[in-house]
Amino acid sequence: MKRERFVGHRISLLLPWLLLALSLWLVFSQVERPAALVNVGVQWARVGALAIVMTAIILTGGIDLSVGSMIALSSIVMGMLWNAGWPAEVASVLAVLVGGAAGSVNGLLVVLGLSPLVATLATMAFYSGLALMLCGGEKITKLPAPAIDTSQVAGWPSEYWVLALVFAAAMLVVHGTRFGRWCYAIGDNPIAARFAALPVRRTQWWLYTASGLVAGLLAVAYTVRKGAIPDAHQGIELEAIACVVVGGTLITGGRGGIPQTLLGIVVIANIDIGLFFLSGRFKFIGAEARLMVVGVLLIVVAMWNEWLARSDDRLETRNEGAEQT
């Protein structure tokens, strides 16, 4: 019996949309000046850009826990070079390249056969420790003024432009090119992908490298705005993964997409900002409570997504029996 499978997709978006409605209400019932949201949301634009690249990686069944450390490393490199007198433009380009290099090392480890979990867990430690070593544990905040003030472009903080750029690029690549199709196939069945003559290892390597490049880009934006602070980026990987999961992408890969992640970003950002405003009124909601909500949402929605996916599959398991004669 073949039932309509698209019901599953509709239900799976129900939860994120509900959360979105809730979060929007939360925010707009509290905020007095919507314009203030732009500045508050800068950090979420940062998370968002990472989440979008992370979506592509998670689609292939992988994960990248080292994004925060890669930002730290690139930021420190840029800060140190800039401080030492290098022109800001050169320092920026080098920072992005450092991010790319870090990402490509991740990619190499995964291609060699390490599980992405272990590889990026180890490089997370390695890169953040390296960043601290390079700067001697001191943050670099007194940076020479740049020739052009790039912290804002056309009235919007540059992080938003990075987000827009990454979103556009990801939409094009993941949903418009062969490369994106390969990602879905690899996440669904890496063996079948290999048998279908897809370049599995090359695809994976490029994804992790892209993650590093985006981290480098974000590092530049952050350093220009606030300076090179090595421990300011811890925990961002959790937030990024939460955005991906809440948007409806399966952590096991093969299902999901970029627009879903955008939804997830908006939901989580709004919940966090809403709680932030609420904490002004209710003292017990502190910074840690907001973070806890993200953690709980991550687990609950991940479980919900898996349950949905399995109830979809249960409708189709009968077809598998034919293989056993």
């Binding site: 502190g286 687990i299 898996e306």
Partner: peptide
């Protein structure tokens, strides 16, 4: 086990939850 979610995701989330409880 019950949610059939990979332990990395579960413990990633719980890491934050436990830390939040500690701070509280």
């Amino acid at each position: 086990l019950v949610g059939k979610v990979h332990p990395i995701v579960v413990t990633l989330g719980m890491m934050i939850v436990y830390r939040g409880m500690v701070i509280a």
